[in-house]
Computed example of a mutant assay.
Amino acid sequence: MANAILIQNANLYAPTPRGIQDILIVNGSIVKIAPHIDAAPIELPLQVLDAAGRMVIPGYVDQHVHIIGGGGESGFYSRTPEIMLSNLTAAGITTVIGVIGTDGTSRHPETLLAKARGLTQEGITAYMLTGSYELPLHTILEDARKDIIIVNECLGIGEIALSDHRSSEPTKDELTKILTQARLGGMLSGKAGVVQFHMGVGKKGIGLLLDILADSEIPAKHIIPTHINRAFHLFEQAKELAKKGGYIDITSGIREQDGFPACVKPSDAIAQLYSDGVPMEQVTMSSDANGCMSVVLPDGSAKQLAVDASSFHEEVRDALLAGIVPAEQVIAVATSNPARANGLYPKKGCLAVDSDADMIILDENLLVDTVIAKGKVMVQNKKVLVKGTFED
């Protein structure tokens, strides 16, 4: 049955500021945005939400989440479980891209695809990248190019580890061929064809990627190094890549106390990139949610914790409150920029007529209050209304 939601008096950031607007949603899509929309002529079951005094922004597009679990690097007991729907929606994440990470042996792209389809059926929108840290790539079909072309949910390749003790030490030629696979796969399927690179703290940083850009015809837009704020030298190299047209991805959960003494706090990273004149449309952020973090306890033992998706909104909020970067550019880092990078814009990452009705209503303290995904209210008044199939 057709249904409609009317959001009234929204302080709309689409992510560009639109002022006070009403938003009409019908069957999962935005059909009208105007200063006033009269509810009387709407001949459908209608839910009205008053957003007076509140900011309404696009739902977050998180391009790096271990949806089938991550970790395992401290032994089998340290493998994180699959993520639950409400772990994402409570953080305002309405579009997610799943990655495998370190363990391409006991975790498989077929499982990643199944989980992405499950999350989509439960109410958000989920995609995947094929491959993992290591080369040769583990794929669903014979090669990554075929995965991108044939598998609708597969947007590209990743995350391939570089400058990391867990990397398979790929050569420049190997990476160039992988980038070519992604580009051709994307061209033939109408997708972005990106390659996401896990960046460790090794001294080479993203130098190999910059060399490939200098010596090949591959456009920079296909390259997305992530975790670029986990070390100062990575952060500086990333600025150069962004100026060449590549996308650079900040990880939201990184802190000094998490074992990264030379890191840049995510909200500070946004501010520094802006102040240094880096093209902000090339800057994205992701959560690395559901990966595994080993925390050393006072007695010297280690405790394994799954990375929480909540850090994603916390960093957006911190950057908004700091007031250094214009609000629309902060919001774009978490919405329209990753949507563009992965070929999902304008269906995702913005609030416009014909876009998917994915949005967040923030309260007066800029906390996540209400989350709508594909026109369905998933979270309201900070309470999760829709839970995943196996959630309590």
Score class of each variant (00 low, 15 high):
228 I>R: 05
18 R>K: 11
382 K>Q: 11
24 L>F: 13
226 T>C: 14
174 E>V: 03
123 G>D: 07
259 G>E: 01
258 D>I: 01
221 K>R: 15
351 L>P: 13
303 K>A: 15
24 L>M: 12
313 H>I: 01
167 S>R: 13
295 V>M: 11
194 V>P: 04
293 M>L: 11
208 L>Q: 08
385 L>T: 12
254 I>W: 07
355 S>Y: 02
305 L>N: 14
294 S>I: 07
101 G>L: 11
281 E>F: 01
382 K>F: 02
67 I>Y: 07
231 A>Y: 08
81 P>H: 08
137 L>C: 10
118 G>Y: 06
284 T>P: 02
108 H>A: 07
3 N>G: 04
97 I>G: 01
183 R>W: 05
280 M>P: 12
27 N>I: 02
279 P>S: 11
87 N>H: 13
109 P>V: 08
342 N>A: 00
294 S>E: 05
254 I>R: 00
114 A>I: 01
137 L>Q: 06
30 I>Q: 06
298 P>K: 01
36 H>P: 05
95 T>G: 09
215 D>N: 13
340 R>C: 05
64 H>C: 08
171 T>D: 08
58 P>G: 01
53 G>W: 09
135 L>E: 11
252 S>N: 09
353 V>K: 13
10 A>M: 00
299 D>P: 06
134 E>R: 14
76 F>D: 05
186 G>P: 05
1 M>G: 10
60 Y>M: 10
204 K>I: 10
226 T>D: 13
225 P>A: 04
330 V>Q: 03
199 M>V: 02
108 H>Q: 01
67 I>P: 06
266 P>F: 00
104 G>M: 12
178 I>V: 14
9 N>I: 01
91 A>E: 03
96 V>A: 03
85 L>P: 04
74 S>M: 13
235 F>R: 03
77 Y>P: 00
211 D>R: 09
2 A>E: 15
76 F>K: 07
3 N>F: 06
180 T>C: 12
57 I>N: 15
99 V>G: 11
290 N>F: 03
282 Q>D: 06
204 K>H: 13
367 L>Y: 15
136 P>L: 13
63 Q>F: 15
361 I>W: 05
195 V>L: 12
67 I>D: 00
245 G>T: 06
63 Q>I: 12
164 D>Y: 05
54 R>A: 05
25 I>N: 07
177 K>S: 15
39 A>P: 12
264 V>I: 13
381 N>W: 11
18 R>M: 07
102 T>F: 03
322 A>T: 04
170 P>H: 11
386 V>T: 00
282 Q>R: 14
8 Q>W: 10
80 T>A: 14
226 T>V: 15
